[in-house]
Amino acid sequence: MHASKVRGIQVHYELYKTSNHKPVLVLLHGFLSSTFSYRRLIPLLQKEYTVLSIDLPPFGKSEKSTRFTYSYKNIASVVIDLISSLQFKKVTLVGHSMGGQICLYIAKQKTDLVDKIVLLCSSGYLKRMPRSLIYSTYLPYFHYIVKRKLERQGVKHNLLNVVFNHSLIDQDMINGYTEPFLDNRIFMALTRMIRHREGDLTPQDLHTIEHPVLLIWGEQDRVVPLSVGKQLHKDLPNSTLITIKNTGHLVPEERPEIVFKHISHFVPV
């Protein structure tokens, strides 16, 4: 695990590099997640690629700043600057859920940095939070409301919702997804994210992204249903959609071998 100060915020990342000649994959996780969600996919990818897996602020081990503006545009800029600081000139972006939307923002902001994009059950078409909720984030102690809501849901309940095969859920998995939330500062940062997060890219924005895009979707995804993947496939002009049976939202955990197979065809070494 490495850390670097980027745009005033400490960003943690994992880097697996054995050669300067391998294609570079940048892995971006989803909302309330971290690089931990790629723990089963990274061992397969690192044999063939240079892999950079980033804890998007304020998640994982990255800083939970109460000064940073947690807009997608800003988070995308942090990722762009980190990639540049590591002197990678051309990368393939791999994004799960919210991380997929960040990938699309990066492609819009820094077109020439991106070679290809892999979207794993990517979020899409979400609007900005309601104005009443945004105003509520300015109330003192609003972060306690955020904390109580997440605690009531519980990590195990969330995992049951995102994984089709419930037998995969063990204590290691529960611990891995719980750990980042033991730091109370994340709830203050999440309050700021509710306030700052703009809506997802519009169909008009998506039409301008001409990079090759591979969409991989679990057919039983209850968080971001397959209908979103089908709409993204229509709106992204150079895209391919692959669906996986008996699979939920957390495809890197559930189907790492299948995801690796499709990535290796899409990004040949």
Score class of each variant (00 low, 15 high):
Lys5Glu: 14
Tyr13Met: 03
Leu15Ser: 03
Tyr16Thr: 02
Tyr16Ser: 09
Lys17Arg: 15
Thr18Pro: 00
Gly30Phe: 01
Leu32Gln: 03
Ser34Asp: 04
Ser34Thr: 02
Ile42Trp: 01
Glu48Phe: 04
Pro57Phe: 06
Pro58Ile: 00
Pro58Thr: 06
Glu63Asp: 04
Tyr72Met: 15
Ser77Met: 13
Asp81Thr: 11
Phe88Asn: 09
Lys89Ser: 15
Thr92Asp: 14
Leu93Cys: 08
His96Phe: 13
Met98Ala: 04
Gly100Pro: 09
Gln101Pro: 00
Cys103Glu: 08
Leu104Tyr: 07
Ala107Gly: 12
Lys108Trp: 08
Ile117Thr: 09
Val118Tyr: 08
Val118Asp: 12
Leu120Glu: 11
Gly124Ser: 08
Arg131Gln: 14
Ser132Trp: 09
Tyr138Arg: 09
Pro140His: 01
Tyr141Gly: 05
Tyr141Arg: 08
Phe142Leu: 04
His143Leu: 03
Arg148Ile: 14
Gly154Tyr: 08
Val162Met: 14
Val163Ile: 15
His166Trp: 02
Gly176Tyr: 09
Asn184Thr: 08
Leu190His: 00
Ile194Ser: 12
Asp205Val: 13
Thr208Lys: 12
Thr208His: 13
His211Cys: 04
Val213Cys: 12
Val213Arg: 04
Leu214Thr: 04
Ile216Met: 14
Trp217Gly: 13
Leu232Asp: 10
Asp235Val: 11
Leu236Ile: 05
Ser239Asn: 02
Ser239Gly: 02
Ile258Val: 13
His262Val: 03
Ser264Ile: 05
Val269Gln: 06
